[in-house]
């Protein structure tokens, strides 16, 4: 095999990895008061409908930045909403004074830092970043 072909093969392979869908998981701190949650409960927490869990613990959702693939993937999977549908959903609440979207942090490091230190925080990250200091939901 000549070098050009090998280089091309590597490039194609890398592109394939780059566009592969990241597996997104919801995470809480390892010592979080948040127990196990269903997918519907996770959706409700991030859509601002559920703030207090059945066990009495508070849940504070944290978003990844708007426009990040991990955020789009998370809402599509958990709530079935496209980025535009999510924007329309929050517009309805923001412009009626009924609610505001979760606070968004700059990246997965900030999300992990927040869920480790705040037992009420719940975030989502690419599965490969979910280490032993956090617990994957549900």
């Amino acid at each position: 095999m000549n070098r050009a072909a090998a280089r091309l093969a590597i490039l194609v392979l890398c592109a394939g990895i780059g566009t592969a869908r990241a597996e997104v998981v919801a995470v809480v701190g390892a010592k979080s008061a948040i127990g196990s949650l269903t997918q519907a409960q996770i959706a409700d927490i991030f859509l601002g409908r559920l703030t207090k869990l059945p066990n009495g613990a508070l849940a504070v959702p944290l978003d990844q930045p708007e426009g990040s693939p991990v955020r789009d993937e998370f809402y599509l999977r958990v709530a079935g909403k496209t980025p535009a549908q999510l924007k329309a959903f929050w517009s309805k609440l923001i412009f009626t004074g009924r609610g505001r979207p979760p606070k968004s942090l700059s990246d997965h490091t900030q999300i992990l830092k927040a869920v480790r230190s705040n037992p009420a925080a719940i975030g989502y990250v690419d599965r490969r970043y979910a280490d032993a200091t956090v617990r994957i939901l549900p």
Binding site: K87, A88, F89, S91, K92, F95, T96, R98
Partner: peptide, 16 residues
């Protein structure tokens, strides 16, 4: 806004 219809509160927000 008077909460009288389903969309009363957001009827002016066309995007919603």
């Amino acid at each position: 806004a008077l909460p009288i219809f389903l969309f009363t509160e957001s009827r002016r927000v066309g995007f919603a």
